[in-house]
Design a binder for these strands. Sequence first.
DNA 1: AATTTGCTTAACAATTTTGTTAGTGCAAAA
DNA 2: TTTTGCACTAACAAAATTGTTAAGCAAATT
Lengths: 211, 211
Amino acid sequence: MQSGKHTQLIPDTETAILRAAEKEFIAKGFSGARTTSIAEAAGVTHAMLHYYFRTKQNLFDTIVAAKVDLLKQALISPLLDRNKSLECILRDIISRHMDFIAANPDLPRFLIEEAYNQTDRSSSFLDQIRKHAPVMLRALQEKIDEAAAIGQCRRIEAEMLMLDIASLNIFPFLAAPVVNAALGPLTADRSGFLEARKRENFDTIMRKLRP
Amino acid sequence: MQSGKHTQLIPDTETAILRAAEKEFIAKGFSGARTTSIAEAAGVTHAMLHYYFRTKQNLFDTIVAAKVDLLKQALISPLLDRNKSLECILRDIISRHMDFIAANPDLPRFLIEEAYNQTDRSSSFLDQIRKHAPVMLRALQEKIDEAAAIGQCRRIEAEMLMLDIASLNIFPFLAAPVVNAALGPLTADRSGFLEARKRENFDTIMRKLRP
DNA sequence: AATTTGCTTAACAATTTTGTTAGTGCAAAA
DNA sequence: TTTTGCACTAACAAAATTGTTAAGCAAATT
């Protein structure tokens, strides 16, 4: 069904539109993006965009859904390893999390912006957060309590720890232009800075947990 | 000059437009904002908006400049107290900083968004950051080195510490809808949560500094 | 072979949005 | 009193932007 056409120049028109739309929406946001620019970038008539996705909103929602899925896959796994120590789990979370964000540096800003514009209609992104966050938080709290019981760490709220980790990991990407302007040359070596931040953040979190 | 008109219904038309524009731009961003909506909200003809500010861009720049000024005033002072201890300075910075953000919760997102859209033309916001950040960082580094010399703390990079503080303080506001969705009831008591986070962040930073 | 189905295009239409202009009225200056 | 300058209005204009429609065309189906 997806290829019942004559002979397509582009592998898949729909995919070309999606790719171009992703770039445009992430760079300019929903209201800043132009369907004509997207079509042009995709190398198709702008009528095609409406043929495949009816409306701009529909196209946008498709992109959001894909990104939310991506995020979901990246976040659900690491906490489930029951037999690892809290320290290992935290090191894993921080490292994986930062690798994921580094591979998708615009994702946090895109999704947060999306979350902000959803006062009225429900957001697939926030719905997912509401669904998965409590589960992860309970699992993390359990791990903390276990470690605290044998004196390996303080008994602190999983919510606060999670917020610390998220803040430390995500903020530099969210505020990238500002951080670059403020710290200058320090951030020039991207992958070096990334690894330094991983170590730094893990250390910060472990110190916070110390009894 | 500013009041050489017949008898004005609104105290100051220009101010009314600025106020309405501020709300609209912060809520919807530059491309999402509509000059007609701004004029309507300000209770004036939309021609007035162009009369006072010529273009939408001009109006936007005026708002940005005002906000950058606001931020500047809030950030330059506390580090300059020479005779206070590092601990006092950090407690002050964190507390003041969070109070300021709590009073202007949309400001970080607004300015970061603005910084992102300035690849081409120069940004008054980023210019200010580039100007003031090095000074503050040097002052902070000096304080850290002093304290480290008498064994009160580790010798760590001021840049990293600053980034930690900014991340921990700002992120919860930047990602407010997401944080609310994830942590739920915890964030319901706004001022309680704010104070809890102040303590938490100060503690996190002090632990990071411990030898 | 005839028909149907899906992809594509070009032209058009409607609306929104930004910006302009000519003119009006009032108040202060001349 | 006349003139000048400023705030303001209403109508208009231009452009951009989203969305539609009718028709063509190739391939698959009957």
